[in-house]
Design a binder for these strands. Structure first.
Lengths: 116, 116
DNA sequence: TGTTTAGGTATGAAAAAAGATACCTAGTAA
DNA sequence: TTACTAGGTATCTTTTTTCATACCTAAACA
């Protein structure tokens, strides 16, 4: 499968940005990437997010097959955790590319501000 | 310059997504990447964008040093065009990575829908 | 048995992004 | 001289996102 038209390429980019974009989805993925996380754990790491928003974002990422919600059971109790899907893990490389470019961009913009 | 903390990494990603995200900035960059474009040219290629929005987005991308607004003069007349800055051109590679991942993502999601 | 905790949902308000519409200015063309 | 075109700006409305607040259920705890 390849990109055949400009329109299609633009659409593919928009779809990807929809996954990692927005105020919370990047950070959420980033924390779940490190290790599986529970709802309230995410909520407290993220700080200012509300339950409603976190819940909505998690369900959306699940629907996109980026993460999975799994029940974890011990003898005495059970709980849920969110973890990256096999496919979801592959976004880590992409994000590394984004970070690299971002750092380069920052250097360029800072330079131009200092030496105008 | 490297990423030292998770917070910083998240910030870098957010900054990059702010550049290529939103409804129009990706498409605008994409068309200017191909070749320098004039205001009304962009407006008509993009289709449903208003002058106000296009103008705002272009000024923002200029401020970010991604594009440059340059006057082009012939003997008889003058006009303006928008072109990628030297630095801005480097985003092309990043976008290629995004497209590649996006295509892979699409394959995964389609597969799972067909074979549940 | 009553209370706390995990993991949420429901509803409406506020803020941010995008759109519609009207208008402006400088240059050129007729 | 009048009208047209390029390249916008100004203002207000609509839509989309995010936030605040209150509430709910099931399980575990004391």
């Amino acid at each position: 499968m390849e990109v055949k038209t400009k329109q299609q390429g633009i659409k593919v980019v928009a779809d990807v940005l929809d996954i990692i974009g927005g105020k919370w989805r990047g950070p959420i993925l980033s924390y779940i990437c490190d290790k599986p996380r529970r709802f309230n754990e995410l909520k407290s790491i993220l700080g200012r997010i509300t339950s409603a928003t976190l819940s909505k974002e998690l369900r959306y990422l699940e629907e996109l097959r980026m993460i999975e919600r799994v029940e974890i059971r011990t003898e005495t109790s059970s709980a849920y955790e969110y973890r990256m899907s096999q496919h979801g893990k592959s976004i880590k490389t992409l994000i590394q590319h984004v970070v690299e470019w971002g750092l380069q961009h920052r250097r360029v913009v800072l330079e131009e501000e200092i030496i105008p």
